[in-house]
């Protein structure tokens, strides 16, 4: 009895010493942990967090980059001006139009392809397919755009060559003008984007399929379920998380597309590629007036509109357990 008490006392004493040392070590670790985080945080705050708040501030002022006079706080004037401008609504609608053209293809086609590739049992063939699938994903964005700018070229592009010279569906007079602000521009860009993401998204789904235990669909099949039933009741619910990530991320990237429009569309306000991102860019950098305050408000309105839809999507797709 006595012994145990003594032993207990001893152990609490060593514990206390140990605790103090551990505490000192924890503090040292906390300090050094911030040292490790510092480089990432400097870049993240300097080029992502600060700019967003800076743009938010600019959107409430009449800030103009080239002017000498200091910026005045104008409250919601820029927002009111933007919301009264029909171009704001048209440009938001155009971005949504593009998103609706692009999103279904970029989810459904890869899903289909993933289910097919997932069944390939020959390991060599499976690897080959996967490598080919990821080739477009390692082509940098601008090079994808340049490639398709050539593919869609009115005179020398292979697509029109196929339509005019090989199939004879069109003549040089009425051949489709794919890019450059025509009504076909947005669908053309959407097709290009689906091509670009096809492999990458397929790999995403394949990884999701690999996480489903093999015996689950097998058991359903032995029970006599049709392939469609297996897909709908066994595979689809288990792929839902992957699909949710893809839908939300791709919605975000599609609504905020700008590089493609800069390369394929130009600053014609009537062009279907003149979306809110182009409107913002035009006002902030191109018109010569450099109205950054107004441009910032356009950017913020676009971003807020997007965030509302993203929140809505996250709610729809929330796990229901």
């Amino acid at each position: 009895m006595e012994q145990t008490i003594a032993a207990n006392r001893l152990s609490t004493a060593t514990h206390r010493v140990g605790a103090r040392a551990a505490h000192a070590r924890r503090t040292r670790e906390r300090v050094s942990s911030w040292m490790f985080l510092l480089p990432a945080l400097v870049f993240f705050i300097g080029y992502q967090v600060y700019p967003i708040f800076r743009v938010l501030w600019i959107s409430f002022t009449d800030y103009a980059f080239l002017s000498n006079r200091p910026a005045h706080w104008v409250w919601f004037d820029n927002y009111a001006a933007a919301l009264h401008d029909p171009l704001m609504w048209v440009s938001l609608w155009r971005a949504l139009e593009f998103t609706l053209m692009f999103l279904p293809g970029t989810i459904i086609l890869p899903l289909l392809l993933a289910i097919l590739v997932d069944r390939v049992t020959n390991p060599r063939l499976a690897t080959l397919y996967r490598v080919v699938l990821l080739v477009p994903a390692v082509i940098p964005s601008t090079l994808v755009f340049v490639l398709w700018k050539w593919m869609y070229n009115f005179q020398t592009g292979p697509i029109n060559h196929l339509l005019v010279d090989v199939l004879g569906l069109f003549t040089l007079q009425d051949a489709p003008q794919w890019l450059g602000g025509t009504p076909l521009t947005l669908p053309s860009i959407a097709i290009m984007e689906v091509w670009w993401g096809l492999g990458y998204h397929t790999i995403f789904f394949i990884a999701g399929l690999a996480a489903i235990p093999r015996d689950l669909p097998e058991a359903a099949r032995i029970d006599g379920a049709s392939e469609w039933q297996v897909f709908w009741h066994v595979i689809r619910p288990r792929l839902a998380p992957v699909m949710m990530i893809l839908v939300v991320l791709r919605f975000g990237s599609a609504m905020a597309v700008i590089d493609e429009y800069l390369i394929f569309g130009g600053f014609n306000r009537a062009s279907p590629t003149y979306t809110w991102t182009m409107f913002m860019y035009d006002q902030a950098f191109k018109t010569g007036m450099w109205r950054q305050g107004f441009g910032a408000a356009i950017g913020m309105i676009g971003a807020i509109a997007m965030m509302i839809v993203v929140a809505f999507l996250l709610r729809i797709f929330r796990p229901r357990d």
């Binding site: 080029y47 992502q48 600060y50 743009v55 980059f65 950017g299 676009g302 997007m306 993203v310």
Partner: peptide, 27 residues
Amino acid sequence: FIIAAFLVSLYFPVRVVSLISVYETQH
């Protein structure tokens, strides 16, 4: 908090919206 901030930045169109301020910083 840091992880949440990184996650949110994935969904927000930072690249486009921050452009005005990034231009200013670089200038």
